[in-house]
Simulated scan of single mutants.
Amino acid sequence: MLLNHGERILSSAQSIFEGTGVKISVKVAGIHWHYGTRSHAPELTAGYYNIRFRDGYIPIARMLARNGAILNFTCIEMRDHEQPQYALCAPEKLVRQVALASREANVPLAGENALPRYDEYAHEQILHSSSLNLGGDNEGKKGDEQEMCAFTYLRMNPQLFQDDNWRKFVGFVKMMREGKNGNKCWEQVEREAEHFVYVSQPLVQEAAVALSP
């Protein structure tokens, strides 16, 4: 039912936006709770038929590929050990499975963070997930990386524009832009980003005021 619904919606969207240059992106929820169980009950409840012996994300990725859509996945800032251990959460393993499915279906993969995070630890995980090595036994082999085509940062609010958070965010954007060719530590990147932090201050103050309750 979920796949059929996706086909209908994308078919309608294509008929509307065809020839306009608009890229259609479909958000697939990152349901990582109880991912470490054999039943994958939360995913099944949401309509994602992903169990121990069946990859539920390949059919979704193939459906998106048939309709020329981008697979937009969430929770890429999360690490397995940060989640409640009693719930057997595994967001990193889930992101990897979805990345493999998108590569199998030859559909572009985009990502976003699920929670508002402003710390470098989360930024580092986003950088890692946005260029995930899927080599397995051939790790490090050329062509094993799954590069995300886009990333959406959630979200813009007064907390983001606090001095320390904004400084880290500017450094994070610089690291994302430079990608794997950067090879710089966070301290160096933040030093280089100071100019952009300084020149953006009037806009940051304006945004903070506009977003205040």
Rank of each mutant, 00 (worst) to 15 (best):
residue 77 E to F: 04
residue 45 T to Y: 08
residue 21 G to C: 02
residue 14 Q to A: 13
residue 81 H to W: 12
residue 4 N to C: 06
residue 98 V to I: 15
residue 28 V to T: 12
residue 26 V to F: 05
residue 16 I to H: 03
residue 12 S to M: 05
residue 78 M to Y: 09
residue 55 D to T: 07
residue 60 I to H: 03
residue 8 R to H: 04
residue 64 L to D: 06
residue 41 A to S: 13
residue 58 I to W: 05
residue 96 R to D: 07
residue 43 E to P: 01
residue 67 N to G: 11
residue 37 T to F: 04
residue 19 G to D: 05
residue 48 Y to V: 15
residue 3 L to P: 05
residue 90 A to Q: 08
residue 20 T to I: 07
residue 9 I to S: 00
residue 75 C to Y: 12
residue 22 V to P: 00
residue 51 I to D: 01
residue 45 T to E: 13
residue 63 M to C: 14
residue 66 R to N: 15
residue 69 A to N: 04
residue 49 Y to Q: 12
residue 26 V to G: 01
residue 73 F to G: 00
residue 94 L to F: 02
residue 35 Y to I: 07
residue 10 L to M: 09
residue 10 L to K: 03
residue 49 Y to V: 14
residue 64 L to G: 00
residue 27 K to I: 11
residue 35 Y to D: 03
residue 88 L to G: 02
residue 92 E to P: 00
residue 8 R to W: 02
residue 6 G to V: 02
residue 86 Y to H: 13
residue 99 A to P: 05
residue 55 D to A: 11
residue 97 Q to R: 12
residue 45 T to F: 15
residue 42 P to T: 12
residue 3 L to M: 03
residue 29 A to C: 09
residue 72 N to L: 10
residue 87 A to L: 15
residue 31 I to Q: 01
residue 7 E to L: 04
residue 52 R to A: 10
residue 80 D to T: 15
residue 64 L to P: 00
residue 47 G to V: 14
residue 62 R to T: 15
residue 75 C to M: 11
residue 71 L to D: 01
residue 93 K to I: 05
residue 42 P to M: 07
residue 42 P to H: 07
residue 18 E to P: 00
residue 67 N to M: 15
residue 65 A to Y: 08
residue 18 E to R: 08
residue 33 W to S: 13
residue 81 H to C: 13
residue 47 G to T: 09
residue 39 S to D: 14
residue 50 N to Q: 06
residue 38 R to V: 15
residue 34 H to Y: 15
residue 55 D to H: 08
residue 51 I to H: 03
residue 98 V to T: 02
residue 79 R to D: 09
residue 67 N to K: 15
residue 20 T to C: 04
residue 62 R to C: 07
residue 82 E to S: 09
residue 60 I to S: 06
residue 71 L to Y: 14
residue 17 F to P: 00
residue 63 M to I: 06
residue 100 L to W: 06
residue 47 G to L: 13
residue 17 F to R: 00
residue 71 L to T: 10
residue 57 Y to F: 15
residue 11 S to A: 04
residue 87 A to D: 10
residue 9 I to P: 08
residue 10 L to I: 03
residue 85 Q to S: 13
residue 6 G to H: 04
residue 84 P to F: 08
residue 91 P to Y: 01
residue 80 D to Y: 00
residue 95 V to C: 05
residue 88 L to A: 13
residue 11 S to D: 04
residue 52 R to K: 15
residue 39 S to M: 10
residue 90 A to M: 10
residue 24 I to N: 02
residue 26 V to L: 12
residue 3 L to D: 00
residue 92 E to F: 02
residue 4 N to R: 06
residue 70 I to L: 10
residue 30 G to V: 04
residue 26 V to N: 05
residue 91 P to G: 03
residue 60 I to M: 15
residue 18 E to Y: 05
residue 51 I to A: 09
residue 62 R to N: 12
residue 79 R to L: 13
residue 83 Q to F: 04
residue 64 L to A: 05
residue 72 N to R: 02
residue 93 K to Q: 11
residue 54 R to E: 14
residue 51 I to V: 14
residue 22 V to Y: 05
residue 82 E to L: 14
residue 44 L to F: 10
residue 72 N to E: 09
residue 31 I to R: 01
residue 38 R to C: 10
residue 37 T to R: 04
residue 16 I to C: 03
residue 42 P to V: 09
residue 17 F to Y: 14
residue 34 H to A: 12
residue 77 E to L: 03
residue 98 V to D: 02
residue 44 L to Y: 08
residue 89 C to D: 03
residue 34 H to T: 12
